[in-house]
Design a protein around this nucleic acid. Structure first.
Lengths: 127, 127, 127, 127
DNA sequence: GTGGTCTAGACCACC
DNA sequence: GTGGTCTAGACCACG
């Protein structure tokens, strides 16, 4: 699964687990209906408490990223389940950060350049 | 001072106080060497614990936004003190959010449009 | 038999199997004394554990929907066996949900309209 | 607070706590911005583990019924926060139960009578 | 004092 | 084996 926790990170562990998994799912690294590691197995792999993994899984499910089958395990959902709401959420975060940036005197041209930079490095991979 | 706290906000109160003050300072609403309200006065005005204001001021000082003179009060620093480091910090945040946005399938064109929107509404104020 | 399981459904599989079978029986699709598929056959058809089917059959029997003949198989009961108790059970569920609905501010008129909608769509099929 | 847990109930304790609180909030028994008992206090009152109460509170918050202020406590939200989504959820539950009822041979007239009964007992209280 | 996170370990239901 | 709930008890951040 290749997940690494960062104990210097201030965020709670279960949030880091969530973030890692959502990134893998969003990037398409985990295809639909793929089985995720069991709660216990992932807990062992990350050397954390099963409850912590379970909380991550529970929240991922309530956000539509995965679905749970009693006695079977956790599986990744169809992307249509999360796509739209996550899109809105991220756009709102960016808008808010943009406004803060402007109030600190950052110029439109700098923002545009930043878009170019980031998209440039990713363009080869995805388009 | 016109600071309003939002108790529904998940962030700690001292962070909200910091944010409001940095915004006022960055926007130029508080000129250099202007005296800020005393810890006690601001605490009363906002109906919060003086410790909370204290912490906000302490961190603002360590970030270079204000300077403290023992027995006199707190004053806003020259903008050269914070300008550069805050600029880098925000740009880094935006870059990181951009990368996350791309991994969730958000397109370059959407980002560019967002820049236009935000700058459009702000342009009249600042340029 | 035409039973489809929904693995995204939160309920246990044996409950889904029960629900599907009771619906078939209640709708009259399975006439009295009709033989049901064997535990093993249904387990294979649905690609689930025979224990799961077993449990569904056991509970259907204790609720009066089917009867078991050792060594012969499972057969659907006369409707008089389950009709009355199931009727009471469902009416009680609806009454309880109605009361909850009212406490959340849902109006009588909305409930009446809902009845019309559901009965309207079903009337063509059944009457 | 007058909450009583039912240990014969099959549902998890945290769900019972949630249900009791949502009912109190929906019925208007707890006005907006009213402070709820602290996690620990309610845990003692109900003789359960604080973690269980906390889970109830956390989920109530994510569903918009209450809001949490670090170091202060939990408070009931404006009804606009939950009204709409809860309305849809309940209507969907009722519709689903209606359809099941019809497949078991329950008549439209019985449903209508049930609406009258329930609304009749409540009408005096609320309209 | 408040809520929030995490651990360790137990027990249950389902498959 | 799987996930789900609950307990007991610890530690932290915030006010």
């Amino acid at each position: 699964m290749l997940i690494a926790l960062d104990y210097r990170d201030k965020r709670p562990l279960y949030e880091q687990v969530k973030e890692k998994l959502t990134n893998l799912i969003a990037a398409g690294a985990l295809p639909e209906d793929e089985k995720l590691p069991s709660v216990r197995a992932l807990a062992v792999e990350l050397a954390i408490n099963p409850n912590t993994v379970q909380r991550a899984y529970r929240e991922l499910e309530s956000e539509g990223f995965i679905y749970t089958v009693q006695g079977r395990g956790n599986f990744v959902s169809k992307s249509s389940m999360w796509q739209n709401s996550k899109y809105k959420e991220i756009m709102e975060e960016i808008r808010s950060l943009f406004e803060q940036a402007l109030s600190f005197g950052i110029k439109k041209s700098e923002l545009l350049e930043l878009v170019e930079q980031v998209c440039g490095t990713e363009r080869g991979d995805k388009e």
